[in-house]
Amino acid sequence: MSEVAIDREIDRSKLQVSDEVAIEITMMNKWYGDFHVLRDISLTVNRGERIVVCGPSGSGKSTLIRCINRLEEHQKGTIVVDGIELSSDLKNIDKIRSEVGMCFQHFNLFPHLSVLDNCTLAPIWVRKEPRKEAEDRAMHYLERVKIADQALKFPGQLSGGQQQRVAIARSLCMNPRIMLFDEPTSALDPEMIKEVLDVMVDLAETGMTMICVTHEMGFARQVANRVIFMDQGQIIEQNEPEEFFNNPQSDRTKLFLSQILSH
């Protein structure tokens, strides 16, 4: 995997971590039928932390972050997001979902709506904001992901990188306090990966709490303050990026790193 995707200076002084807890996962377990996908996951994320999750295919990375906004249901243990425990209470779930933004590998923009409408839909219908206000903020975020000039196009008319940036702007329009990314760049060509990672770095510099499933090790090294390695539904190792990459402890981590870095 590329290490050079980010070629700009990152002002690490902006990357502040507060000691307020944003997400608290305790002894969480999940099964698909008989298949035990997540095993005893415990993870505390403070506000402002940027966590990169990596691991081999099928290790449960997507499942883990999808549990955080209840796209998947866990069966044991607790997940507390922003002080609200995820239970089957629909009110809580909708509340958490509107506080937690998510970006998918395949963008999942709404193809029947223009870029601008994609961004204003949730603020207008979930937050009941006036259209004008929602549009102003949408344009602000589209500006920030450098795509404001395409606001009236439909997603099908944009490149992959542009679509992913719109997807990020769409999430930001809900003013989320936490952002989840599930392999946001793995469906993209190299030059588009860079434009998306740039936007994510920007976002990190605003102090956003982020959990990213990604194999962009350059991004992990420079932006993350913690890297988590998962295998077979368990957290095998977690450490600061420097330590994680230069001095991995477990054999499985070493094997994984040697495989992805030898590309």
């Binding site: 209840r70 998918f104 395949h106 923009l109 839909l121 949730a122 999430s171 809900m174």
Partner: peptide
């Protein structure tokens, strides 16, 4: 993904 994106936005 369309269902998931709608859910994830809190609709």
């Amino acid at each position: 993904g369309q269902y998931e994106a709608a859910d994830a936005l809190g609709l």
